[in-house]
Amino acid sequence: MAGPASPPGFLTATLQKAVNWARTRSMWPATFGLACCAIEMMATGASHHDLGRFGMEVFRASPRQADLMIVAGRVSQKMAPVLRQVYDQMPDPKWVISMGACASTGGMFNNYALVQGVDQVVPVDVYVPGCPPGPQSLMHGILTLHDKIRSGEIVR
């Protein structure tokens, strides 16, 4: 790979494009449904909104088979270590979408029980606002992540 200072040559640039294209076209999310947002995540995957259009309908129960974690819902202090463990079990490259106000910032529950933003536990790529975000919002977040991957480098 070319160093960070030099621009990529023809070969590496084409390879990068191809790899990024492949990564966005079959992105498998791990199920990490926690609360209200999980219901909307299910709605996004179910018949009416159909995430299969983006090659993403295969919600994997095992983190070993997933490359995207959609943190859907409020993360309690008790759940945070579990969240981190699931994230660590996912193979690289991996991405995280923080879905909803609670996962992003703690939302309306600024108290002893909740982690005030899941980015304290795992690195987050895209934040989706809403309480809960509708399926359209989640899909917009997913497409934003696709754009981010397509325009980025293979090795982060």
Binding site: L34, A35, G73, R74, S76, K78, M79, V82, M108, F109, N111, Y112, A113, L114
Partner: peptide, 10 residues
């Protein structure tokens, strides 16, 4: 307790 949100306190 994995989803305890402290709502009664809130």
């Amino acid at each position: 307790g994995y989803l305890h949100t402290g709502m009664e306190k809130t």
